[in-house]
Amino acid sequence: MRTAPFIHIDNNIAVMDLKTIAALLPCVVYAVFSYGLRALVLTVFTAALWILTETAMKKVTGRGSLRDLSPAVNGIVLAMLLPPGTSLYMAALAVLFGSIVVKGLFGGEGAGFVNPAAAGRLFVEVCFPERMSGFYSVGVKMLAYKSLFDTKVPEETAVAEYSDFRPVELIAGHYPAFIGTGCLIMVITGLVYLIIKRSIRLETPVAFIAIIIIGRLIVDVRTDVYNTFVFIMTSGVVFAAVFIMSDITTTSRRGLNGVLMGMIGGLIAVALSLRGNPAVTLCVPPLAVGLISGFMDFTDSAGRKMRQKGGQADA
């Protein structure tokens, strides 16, 4: 089966991917601005490897378009979710898992049921958690590159007591985080661009964030509601909402269904945030929503076929 453009000639899949890449650029700029050479290499490496892997797979299987830009999007999104101390080996593992296992083996572009970038990121987090702990302070060692080739567990991990940081620092992304999710202003810049270019449906992301804010407020009201602000700023959930939850392939539902998917994702994120692993909090909700969304699509499709068969029998 080949996927087809389905919205408008000005907004076909390739154009939308290109716009998504453009929308991701503020986050990429933030990554390089904050973590220097390591972030740049990681981003280029994951995007290039994802493109190469999918190109090779498409040539082998004969399925998919070689001019498709979704591998680049997946690679960049994955890079933005990595800690700055991640080695290229770990990044490569995440890319291979996301592109071959999640995306390739389940039908390729347009046929996947979960976001491959989030799945790849979650894979390395679950399998090699100690190697995904290389967090660094922002703006230091900008030309450092050894961590890219380090086969050992990262030694330096920056403090993650985000509540110690001042609001201005949190908004500006001046705290240790994943390389591309830390600066809310950059994510919002990308979001505004996507809205202007009509390349995003807001139901799911808005519902997702709204439920997270409400859920965290309920949790934090007993301690300090400032923690809710800190969580929204530092957890990367806004990045996940804009660039993962809005993925039309894996979360393609509109209207109330889209809102429902966002709410489910938000509830899962709130529950996971209490466990304290930011990567899991970030990646599991989109994957869960993708699975639920896929199951609902399947039941809808099966129901339509049943109704069609019933109508033919009546006739």
Partner: peptide, 28 residues
């Protein structure tokens, strides 16, 4: 062209953010 504009805008915003937050960071 739009991407380039976004990059320029991002750099400007990041420089402003960095300027505003560096004093705060130092105090903290």
């Amino acid at each position: 062209v739009e991407a380039l504009l976004l990059v320029v805008l991002s750099v400007v915003l990041l420089i402003i953010g960095s300027f505003l937050s560096s004093d705060e960071e130092n105090r903290r």
